[in-house]
């Protein structure tokens, strides 16, 4: 039977479903027996979910307008490069 510290190293592969059958079974048996690790893996997955959801939310709230300064600087740079090549 795995202990909590040994269980820890398999968490990501367990979540991804990429563990070999025999190891996956050991992890599953540990989770059945250990309430702390059940709680931990739920919190671990939730924190990934919350991080992704909040970053996506921040990205979606970005205003549409783009500073004219950026457009001007980029166009100038491209033109300078073009004129050097001519």
């Amino acid at each position: 039977m795995l202990n909590c510290k040994e269980f820890e190293q398999f968490i990501d592969d367990y979540i991804d479903g990429s563990l070999p059958e025999n190891v996956s079974r050991k992890v599953y048996l540990h989770l059945l027996a250990c309430g702390d690790c059940r709680s931990y893996i739920t919190a671990y997955q939730s924190s990934i979910e919350m991080g992704k959801a909040i970053c996506d939310k921040l990205d979606s709230e970005v205003p549409e307008d783009v500073p004219e300064e950026l457009i001007t600087l980029v166009l100038e740079n491209i033109k300078q490069k073009g004129s050097k090549e001519d």
Partner: peptide, 17 residues
């Protein structure tokens, strides 16, 4: 990183949803 006792059992406080 996670912490364990001398028996390698978890010692963190569980999240309450």
């Amino acid at each position: 990183l996670p912490e364990y006792d001398s028996n390698n059992c978890r010692t963190e406080t569980n999240w309450q949803f």
